[in-house]
Design a protein around this nucleic acid. Sequence first.
DNA 1: GTCATTTGGTTCAAATTGGAACGAAGCCAG
DNA 2: CTGGCTTCGTTCCAATTTGAACCAAATGAC
Lengths: 167, 167
Amino acid sequence: MTEPRWLDEDEKAAWIAFLSATNLVNRRLEQQLKDDAGLSHTQYEVLVQLNAAPDGSLRMTELADRLVTSKSGLTYQITQLERAGLVGRRSCPSDVRGVFAEITDEGRAVLRSAAPGHVEAVRQSLIDVLTPEQLTHIAAGLGEVSRRLRAEPRCPSQSTQTAPATQ
Amino acid sequence: MTEPRWLDEDEKAAWIAFLSATNLVNRRLEQQLKDDAGLSHTQYEVLVQLNAAPDGSLRMTELADRLVTSKSGLTYQITQLERAGLVGRRSCPSDVRGVFAEITDEGRAVLRSAAPGHVEAVRQSLIDVLTPEQLTHIAAGLGEVSRRLRAEPRCPSQSTQTAPATQ
DNA sequence: GTCATTTGGTTCAAATTGGAACGAAGCCAG
DNA sequence: CTGGCTTCGTTCCAATTTGAACCAAATGAC
């Protein structure tokens, strides 16, 4: 095998910044939400997704995909939230196996009260730190990163060429 | 309290991209390292830090700070790595309480063999997806984000004015 | 020197996470 | 219809993570 393409100075700087920024931001938000609303970031995101869904509910698998978490992890968190009365489970009429997670009124209320503090923390730790230019570049760059990683479940050799429907 | 400053469309796009990109990239690297080298990302980072340190060793607290992890979490991981023979513990001559984590020759060897695959994964999932322009903006923006979060252990009121030297 | 405070690291318990295994259903070719 | 394969969600288990409690030692004020 050939010598790997190591990262040059700029690339390394970007990677290190990415790594530490993500860890630090996550840690900060986790702490803020726990302190101010008694929610983990995962739980908060569950509420956000359900609240934004047309009828306040989503299938378990769909929700797990959106949160980028494992199915078993989601099962656990939904159980916790259910216990807390913030979401409920409904079965799916068209598929007996299916389960909808559905946000409750109390869930919406908790979300509503947690949101301002959360948004403020997001601003302080990330958004307001960036220049408008950096913001747009990050949105575009990381948006593309997300799109690719979501599309590519497993393709080691497929270079950066978009790849037409791997079959 | 006044109406919070909600995120506008661009800000929301950046935030969502940031959130999902970080989750997806983390998941991808975690999986690649586990599959190809039997290491967790945390463990890999421990080896990277120690390997780069002048004498192959760092104090526990210093290392925990660099990895953005808790002290107890680091204690656990160092124990694991020690068990695997990749690092060792040395006591600190100038401070009886202090402990140095030190990478072993085998640790360096494992790191050397894991690095190419890891770098390739970092390229595929992040670096090579970005344009050079996006790369520099991300390095600068997220670098600043890291710097601020590291500097500010707890200052709710300190508005975004603090740092004049944004560039 | 002496006491109070901080610091360094570990230990402990509780929460979370992810993968593998599972049972129940859907789906489809033949 | 029927066997074979995939999908859905849960359960189970092992690994990891974190904060709190702790002990010992360093530091600082007097």
